[in-house]
Amino acid sequence: MALDEPRAVAAEAAAACRLTGVALSRGGRRVLDGLDLTVGSAERVALIGPNGAGKTSLLNAVVGLAPITAGTVEALGRNLSAAGARAAVRGETGYVFQRHALVKRRTVLSNVLHGLLHRPGAWRAWSAMLAPEAWRAEAMEALAEVGLADRAADRADRLSGGQAQRVAIARALVRSPRLVIADEPTASLDPAAGREVMSLFSRIVAKRGVALLFTTHDMADALAYADRVVALKGGRIVLDRRAPEVMPGELEAVFDG
């Protein structure tokens, strides 16, 4: 980051992202309705809420994948409306998707290297065959972090659902992100595998000291693996509390009525 951006640096120290009065419409429907949210630079935030509450739209807005109609989004110290800010922010963001979204016929290592496709000279990140030695080493490191270094040469379609999602996490981590975004990372897994993946994911994010913003339908996951729980309903925040302070039944109430 350039030093002639004192304000940006100050904001960066305080927050991974800061949304102010953000509104977003899709197909004539208001999906986000004047929403304020600040996520700390090393904070793990769970987004919960019924279907259609705007959780995914919020994630997309944070990295500029969805155009907002009002308000401002600042991520990693950059205002997303500024030229070039989106690409820069995305370069420092890791993504984990609902289903692993791995390329099945490629090796685990190749899939992790895909996390580096934003870098200059990225044509060498198509596959593990072409990638520079240093990049391969980085990918192995990320794989080791999720405990799958021994599966590097296996094809991605030979992994179980939980392993595949761990590879997807490694693919997000290899980018050395300062912000990790995950859209229902455990929705495609059975409860046991989901817990295992989520606890590993949360632990790594905490160890690296980066911000995590994830959506989930699982209240227990939200309470166990996040520092803070934010509940959305109808495009507004209806609850925002540190995880240990959430009262029993409070989250369930978000889904009623």
Partner: peptide, 30 residues
């Protein structure tokens, strides 16, 4: 070719060509 890996690579900031070589061609290979 499968949609999800394509979208994932695009979100990672891969170029069109990167998405083609990384996700589309491998899936279409057989």
């Amino acid at each position: 070719a499968e949609e999800e890996p394509r979208e994932a690579l695009t979100a990672f900031g891969a170029s069109r060509f990167g998405v083609l070589m990384g996700a589309v061609i491998p899936d279409a290979m057989p």
